[in-house]
Simulated scan of single mutants.
Amino acid sequence: MKSVQDFSPNAFRAAYEARGWTQADVAKAIGTTVNTVGRWVRGKGAPSPRLFSLLSKELGVARSQLLLPLAPDADLAVLRTRAGLRQEDVADHLSVQASDISEMELGTGRVRDEWGVPLTYLYDVSLDQLAKAAEVTEERWRAGFEAKRHQAP
């Protein structure tokens, strides 16, 4: 499972310390280990989308408060994980198969027109940011595909 790539260890620490919590308190509140929380604080990992959503909820802060600013090269998977969602969650919201979301994020599928507005709400981004992320996703797929083509005998 993909972790939240833009997770900010400093913002996370500030959020739980502002509540007077310890790493152990955070771990217990979201059902993980103190070791795992410690890794996040040290920047040696980041929570999964599911745990990220729980963190936001339990700490009483917006997800955006626990994130670094959105990078200009963010792809569709980054937008989803920043929103604390799994592919299955997005598929449920759009009434499609999780494989449709997987293909969209791999660049082998596209963002269907009817998904645009719902995805902006789910991911809390503008249509321009969604379009840019879709462009980045497709460019990454194309670069990978071209590299494979040139390796073929």
Rank of each mutant, 00 (worst) to 15 (best):
Q5I: 10
T33H: 15
R110K: 12
A18I: 13
G43V: 03
L127H: 10
L130M: 06
D89M: 07
W141I: 03
T81V: 05
A131T: 12
S126T: 10
D92K: 15
K44S: 11
V125Y: 01
R110M: 07
V125F: 00
Y121L: 11
G38V: 00
A98V: 13
G144E: 03
M104Q: 05
P153T: 12
D6Y: 13
V41D: 03
A83G: 01
G107D: 09
E88I: 14
G38R: 06
S95I: 03
V96G: 00
W115I: 10
A71R: 15
D124E: 11
S126L: 01
S102P: 01
N35E: 07
A71Q: 13
R42L: 04
W141D: 00
W40H: 01
Y123I: 03
L94T: 05
L67Y: 01
S56Q: 14
L67N: 02
S64N: 04
V117D: 14
A91V: 09
F7A: 07
D100T: 15
Y121G: 09
A147H: 08
Q151R: 14
Q151A: 09
E103A: 14
S3L: 11
R80I: 02
L79N: 00
D89S: 12
G144P: 00
L79G: 00
G84E: 02
V111S: 08
V78K: 02
A27G: 10
G20Q: 12
K2D: 09
W141A: 04
A46M: 03
R110L: 12
D100N: 15
L54R: 15
A71G: 07
G31D: 13
Y123K: 09
W40L: 01
V125G: 04
L79V: 03
A24N: 09
R42S: 05
S3C: 07
K132P: 00
K28F: 13
R140H: 08
I101M: 10
